[in-house]
Design a protein around this nucleic acid. Sequence first.
DNA 1: CACCATGTTCCTTG
DNA 2: CCAAGGAACATGGT
Length: 283
Amino acid sequence: MPELPEVEILARHLGPLLKNRTIRGVEVLRKRVIAPTTELELAKALRGATFDDLIRRGKYLLFGLRSPDRDKPTLLLGHLGMTGRMFLIDPAASVPKHAAVTLDLGNLRFVFEDTRYFGRLTLDTEALSRLGPEPLGPEFTPKYLAAELKRSTQAIKIKMLDQSLVAGVGNIYASEALFCARISPRIAARRLKPAQISRLCECVREVLNRAINLGSTLALTFAGDGSSDGLFYYGSDGTNAGSLEERFAVYDRAGLPCGVCQTPIRRIVQAARSTYYCPQCQR
DNA sequence: CACCATGTTCCTTG
DNA sequence: CCAAGGAACATGGT
């Protein structure tokens, strides 16, 4: 569940649940997800530490912890990769098959589970230094975007996925934002006109905000039960998540009619990833 | 068996 | 040095 809106919703839910809980033990089941931190370093930094705050930056989660024996707060960086999830379970309950890291919180167990193990939970915060501005923050302006795009020959869709351009937009919302802005995903970034850049800037904010607002309305438990614990965006469960077509105008809708002009939505491959767009509306 | 999947990093090429 | 392209990572669903 991993683009900016989903990470934002997770942070809002998990933050209050973790606040003031102290870590009693650390269990690493997949070393690769904590790299380059070692098991020893992680256990040393986290055991006895207490959760303070949880914020999102791009698609990253930043856990702030305080320790009785340390002056400075400890920062723990999380990333969900493609399939990562984080939730709290009863310590007596079984740990999921692809659990990568678990934290003993006494009467609760924090679980970071990730079937593909592309995610991260690490003390290494270097990745943050490579991130561009927050799309919902004040730095992400048409002026900024124009300056960044003017030398790039890359297709705008591919450029939107560049986390150093803007942090948090992924494959789904890149397609959605370009549809909203009526811009062809194939056009070279440097060819965008000022009016298009302004629309794109606004549309990025709009699609992300709408997804966050939708996520805020859902009753999520983050209990790891698989139905309402954060998989609000793919999920079989149309019950509280709403169907895909209610949420996405073009993503995963190849062959289905465009909601504006009825032209069939097209799927193309760019940088080895699917892009969906309306060939009529997006010129 | 084939192809597809919400992401990032590393290596190569130009 | 930089931009861009592609492979790798790992597992599961269809």
